[in-house]
Design a protein around this nucleic acid. Structure first.
Lengths: 202, 202
DNA sequence: GATATTATCTGTACAGTGTTCAGATAAGGG
DNA sequence: CCCTTATCTGAACACTGTACAGATAATATC
């Protein structure tokens, strides 16, 4: 269904995306450390060693999945933000808040996938590609902050810290809440704190 | 050496702490997902099934280690902060900054251990004990913020958000830098941003 | 001090894992 | 139609977590 190629390939579909998508399903359920290559292969109906034609490693499949999740998160954020139209100051402020909220919402819905993205497995490898991935979310954040700045909704003193502060605090609160170190109702409070911190007027 | 009991136990030392400390060593080197119970046992010189008398599970050993790391981090922070004496406003500000810096420094030095603490494995289980662990770091933060407030170094408006904002942003920046999504030199900038955000006067 | 009880660890076994590699099978080009 | 190339299979190896029946040492009881 999601695959582009014709369904009736003779002894295979397009494996690469099938591997990633069923890996996604299994990681979503049980977490990254419980993902078994053999289980993925079995679920697809293919031999255990078939995957090695597309990924050199189990961890390569996982980090491949991880990178695709950065796209997925950015898609989700952009889709939600596009629901807030208008060129007003109020709309700009709501879009900024939605950017943080969607980050949290997505992670809350898919904690195992979120932990894969920011865990040990996507850490060292393929720095170039990864920077490409999270750059998209970062650019959205910059766009949002620029918009706030145009409407004079963010203090000049704090503007240079905008991206760093907003991303760090949203990511940190999300991560701590998912890990059970903070309660979920604290997230909106944190967003309030960010707005106050950046000098965004109510 | 670190063990309390006499060294010459007949056919065992005190295994529980030996298990945790060599698990610490191996996770520090290779990350939590590569920890093998058999390797731990072999390194200690004990049978593979011996560990099951102290931990029901491989993940139980890992989360046991994880909890001990919260103590270790708090120890490190308290040790460093105690190096900054005095009851001055300047000292209070430096202690606050040191609290964030030590969090980052420790994580930077032990990224695999840090990822274990806040990864999938220490997420769901034993909520009571975990709250006990990170409560110590949280109390230190509260103490620091109270001290700042006494010296009138933090705005009244922002004080209620102090713990949430500081912990989230420090944890978030740390996590993002360790994951390679932000550059390390951004951390001090982030601390500047927090101080500005909380209204701490230079 | 000898004996029974309990805590601690061993040995073996099983199912499942990642990974390799020589070959089978199908697809597509000459 | 054959032959090259991409794709997948099957068997094999070393390793893993875990269970369980027993061995061994430490401790308590008489």
């Amino acid at each position: 269904m999601t695959t582009a190629k014709v369904r009736s390939q003779y002894h295979h579909g397009d494996l690469e995306s099938a591997l990633i998508s069923t890996a996604r399903k299994l990681v979503k359920q049980d977490g990254a450390e419980h993902l078994s290559l053999r289980q993925v292969s079995h679920e697809i109906g293919v031999s255990p060693s078939a995957a090695y034609h597309y990924f050199p490693d189990r961890t390569a499949l996982l980090s491949g999945l991880g990178f695709s999740l950065f796209e997925e998160l950015a898609d989700f954020q952009e889709k939600e933000i596009s629901k807030i139209p208008g060129n007003s100051a109020r709309a700009a402020r709501e879009r900024f808040r939605a950017l943080g909220r969607t980050y949290f919402q997505w992670a809350k819905k898919e904690p195992h996938l979120f932990n894969l993205m920011f865990g040990d497995l996507c850490t060292l490898e393929k720095v170039d590609q990864k920077n490409h991935e999270d750059a998209r979310a970062f650019n959205n954040l910059t766009k949002c902050l620029d918009e706030l700045y145009e409407f004079d909704l963010i203090s000049e003193k704090m503007r240079p810290y905008g991206e760093l502060l907003a991303w760090s605090v949203v990511h940190g609160a999300t991560s701590l809440i998912i890990g059970g170190h903070l309660e979920p109702e604290n997230f909106e409070t944190t967003l309030d704190a960010v707005e106050l911190a950046l000098g965004i007027k109510r």
